[in-house]
Design a binder for these strands. Structure first.
Length: 198
DNA sequence: CTATTGATGGTC
DNA sequence: ACCATCAATAGG
């Protein structure tokens, strides 16, 4: 009941970021830690499509921090933002294409208080217990992975511009943010409440 | 309800 | 100096 417990294979991640962002909706993010098994159902994602995408960290070049983005798919990319929050991404596409998908919101499934807020990249990492220590983990063999969840119908998928990337010029307007329409666990950034794109 | 601001640390 | 954020606060 909690989940089908089928870990997503490398082939799942070895596709364009936008495709992975869509397919990740409904899947389960799992972390088996000292505190037990924590599971959240993904309801909001953002695709960062490559080094040419000015909103993608890889656009700053290949550095110690962005190296994992250029590597093989199916690894975690976790970074610290504003000195106090973490953001969790999965590396996508083939090695050499520096793309990833940011997981922006999940709904509590297991090991998380149902009332705990898990919307927003910072809040979900705090709830799951994800930190910089999980950066670069291989989602095939680590106690951190994604597994099959529930399917999200196409009619339930909404799209809109990514959040907090206004510095990226034209790229900030690309509709690379995807979410489950109507989910009560999707993040609600300022000035975006209630609005939904196709 | 909207708008603004401060917290806080890795990375470049 | 710059942030792929959040919570608290002030104001309508």
């Amino acid at each position: 009941m909690p989940s089908s417990r089928v870990r997503l294979p490398v082939s799942f991640y070895a596709r364009p970021a936008l495709t992975v962002a869509r397919e990740l909706l409904g899947t389960h993010l799992v972390l088996e830690g000292e505190a037990g098994r924590r599971v959240g159902r993904i309801v909001e994602t953002e695709a960062y499509v490559g080094a040419h995408d000015l909103a993608c960290h890889a656009s700053k070049g290949r550095t110690a921090r962005t190296e994992v983005l250029f590597g093989p798919p199916g690894r975690a990319y976790v970074y610290l933002i504003y000195g106090m929050y973490h953001c969790f991404n999965v590396v996508t596409d083939v090695e050499g294409v520096a793309s990833a998908v940011l997981v922006r919101a999940v709904e509590p499934v297991e090991g998380l208080p149902p009332a705990l807020r898990t919307d927003g990249p910072g809040r979900l990492c705090r709830a799951m217990g994800l930190t910089l220590g999980h950066n670069r983990w291989d989602l095939q063999c680590a106690p951190l992975y994604l597994e099959e969840g529930s399917t999200v119908e196409e009619a339930r998928v909404a799209r809109g511009p990514r959040i907090g990337v206004d510095y990226a010029g034209e790229w900030a307007r690309e509709p690379y943010r995807l979410w489950v329409r109507g989910s009560q666990h999707v993040s609600r950034p300022p000035a975006r409440r209630g609005l939904e794109s196709a």
